[in-house]
Design a protein around this nucleic acid. Structure first.
Lengths: 131, 131
DNA sequence: TTAACATAGTTGCACGTGCAACTAATTTTC
DNA sequence: GAAAATTAGTTGCACGTGCAACTATGTTAA
């Protein structure tokens, strides 16, 4: 119920979960990011990132490389195969977005985004107060 | 990132995931539902339901009871403890909804719901065509 | 009535996630 | 310079999920 992009990709012969897709997206923009930075920009915990990178490494999409200057840090790189799969997946992603937005006006899409931001703000407010 | 209701509940000392909450909600409306019906109305797969009921049974929230007339079927019942926890959780849930909607007009909330329905329609269209 | 089919539920495997505890490396502080 | 604190990442445990294969029970059709 929560994996539509991944499902759609699969129906097109692309074996990527939406999380893996997002990581590829950010690596494609700037390869070799620190694992921690990836966690931040993808809005995920370091634990989640560790395991996401594990599976992506097993699938040969990315590779870890320990930073020489600070050996605590991993830099994550796209493999050639990862780059290739991204190139195949991205156009499919754009199609999905198109199809999901059928029959919805530009204004309504913007309004939904605004409402979502407000809800996010309300969540932040609450979780900050409670901790 | 996806468990706000569950997290909020936890901060109030209520140990329920949002999925468990939803199951309690439907059992509270009508106790002893068939497992399959629960899967349908909660919009989950039979596998997901099996495992959800497993954990809820372990936690003592619900109990399975094999149907005498058709031994393939399980009826799911709230335990007294499950009923009690629901009674505690529901008011908290209402508060959450209130807080999440702060600063958002009634009209905007309705519009978001409409947009979500349209997206759902677009998904259904696509997944029907592709299978 | 028996073989074929359908239905309800479970299980193994894989994926993504959070929390808390942990290791290892680097900084800070005294 | 050594102890304490911080930072990056991993691991065990638990939860929810999908898919495909499976068991068990019921229904249908020849």
């Amino acid at each position: 119920m929560d994996y539509y992009i991944g499902d759609y990709m699969k129906s097109r012969g692309i074996d990527l979960s939406k999380e893996q897709f997002i990581v590829l997206k950010y690596l494609n923009e700037s390869d070799g990011r620190k694992q921690n930075d990836l966690a931040f920009i993808t809005n995920r915990s370091k634990t989640a990132l560790t395991r996401l990178i594990n599976t992506m490494e097993k699938k040969g999409l990315v590779s870890r490389s320990i930073c020489e200057k600070d050996m605590r840090i991993n830099h994550i790189y796209l493999t050639p195969s990862g780059r290739e799969i991204w190139a195949m997946a991205y156009p499919v992603f754009l199609e999905i977005i198109q199809e999901l937005q059928q029959g919805i006006s530009e204004e309504d899409i913007l309004l939904v985004q605004e409402v979502m931001k407000q809800i996010q703000k309300n969540i932040n407010l609450k979780t900050t107060v409670n901790q």
